[in-house]
Simulated assay, not measured.
Amino acid sequence: MTSAINHQVQKIEISGIRKFFNRINHIEGIISLTIGQPDFETPQHIKDAAIQAINQNFTSYTHNAGFIELRQAISSFMNQKYHLTYDPTSEIIVTNGASQAIDTALRTILTDGDEVILPSPVYPGYAPIILQCGATPIYIDTTTTQFKLTAAHVKSAVTDKTKAIILPYPSNPTGVSLDKNELQEIADIANTHDLIVIADEIYSELMYDRPHVSIGTMAKERTIIINGLSKSHAMTGWRIGVLMAPEWLAKECIKVHQYNVSCASSISQKAALAAFSDGMNDAVPMREEYRKRRALTGDYLRTLGFTTIEPDGAFYFLARIPSDLSSFDFSVQLAERAKVGVIPGTAFDPHGEGYIRVSYACSQESIHEAFSRMQTFLKK
């Protein structure tokens, strides 16, 4: 019966992050430094807005792109925060999480034989969609460039089949981001070779030492920006993402979005309106706590012999392990013997071998205890 399955689907697998999380999650008493989910509660004013929407029976379909007041709030938020200018009537689409926005963007632009440039190690949510579109992900090893995709990388990888570049910054799994000059150099190459840029900026509100800069301010006419509320407002389960693109692209994306999901949840959209309007600075206290956890986690990792690159944003370290074990074996033994869960770097493609991803989206108490256990494990 396998002949009944789309051959592109047969090529893909369940995310390595989820597979490993599911493998170790049954271990009693384990401290998990695995999943990238904020440990904060959704702000109360956002929850109140959703409750009010339910009580007022705001429970029908909305415009495919999201109801207009929400798109206007998103436009204002992105302009104030990142100097991005998108028309709420024609250039903004509200999606079911950033993941659906990524899916919509890739399905809109890719055809059989296209190539998409990706920095590696990279979040595993892009390649499966690329493959389902009949296209090919082209992984660029960034382990020798501070986990940064450079203009030189892009220039050397471009072929006559290259359709797009994905810029997932701040990065999952590395936390690294690109500065204005680095982005401009990539934008110049995209212009020269007529490439689409997909900028996944879901962690944009979690930048620690400098403001986030969007390539959408440099190459708007060829850029699709992905954002959302999961990380910035602790709203992973609400499933609200945002796709922003110039009108010539957005009018094609809305077709894919419409036939996929019709529209995002009406209740979640009302909650999102509160987040994007009254919750302009909801991420600030979370970011300050993550900053403390970043320092704590980095100190522990370096003290125990891990090689690290300081994250610019998000809430991850991708750390090289002080061991000859493979990333997978190290992570399994750490979970089974020390009851500490991390993600093996190979979950982020083969260039992650030798690394583990450590999430500090957990309490400082959990971090202290996890590294105490890890220290004992390493001594043995």
Rank of each mutant, 00 (worst) to 15 (best):
K148H: 11
I74P: 07
N96P: 02
P128L: 06
I68P: 04
A295C: 06
G113A: 02
G341F: 10
H83A: 09
A275W: 00
L84I: 11
K155L: 13
K163S: 00
V261C: 14
M207F: 03
E115G: 11
N96E: 11
A190T: 05
F377G: 00
A272S: 12
H63A: 15
G66V: 12
H368V: 07
E252I: 08
G216E: 05
L110I: 09
A4C: 09
N172Y: 15
P170M: 12
S359L: 12
G352R: 06
A250G: 04
Q258R: 14
I31C: 06
A135L: 05
T145V: 00
I165M: 07
Y355S: 01
R291A: 04
D329G: 01
I92W: 10
T34M: 12
T308L: 12
H351I: 01
I17Q: 05
R287S: 14
H212M: 13
Q100V: 11
D179F: 08
D349C: 06
L33E: 11
F348I: 07
T145S: 10
A361S: 02
T192R: 15
S99G: 13
S262A: 14
I165Y: 00
L149R: 08
C362V: 15
E182W: 03
E28C: 03
D278S: 01
D114H: 05
G352A: 07
G241A: 09
Y123T: 12
E353S: 03
R23S: 13
M286P: 08
V261K: 13
H26P: 08
F20G: 01
A338G: 08
A234P: 02
E221T: 11
K161E: 08
L325F: 11
Q56H: 15
I186W: 04
I225Q: 01
S15G: 13
F147T: 00
T144L: 09
S323W: 10
E69K: 09
G36F: 14
N55V: 04
G97P: 05
I54L: 14
K81C: 14
S265G: 02
N260H: 14
D48Y: 03
E369S: 04
I321Q: 09
V197W: 05
P124M: 02
H257T: 08
P344F: 05
L325Y: 11
A275F: 06
T89S: 13
I12S: 12
K163T: 06
I35Y: 04
N55I: 03
D160G: 13
H26A: 05
P350Q: 11
F328C: 06
I198Y: 14
K255A: 14
Y316A: 02
Q80Y: 00
S327C: 04
V242A: 01
S177A: 13
M244D: 07
K180E: 03
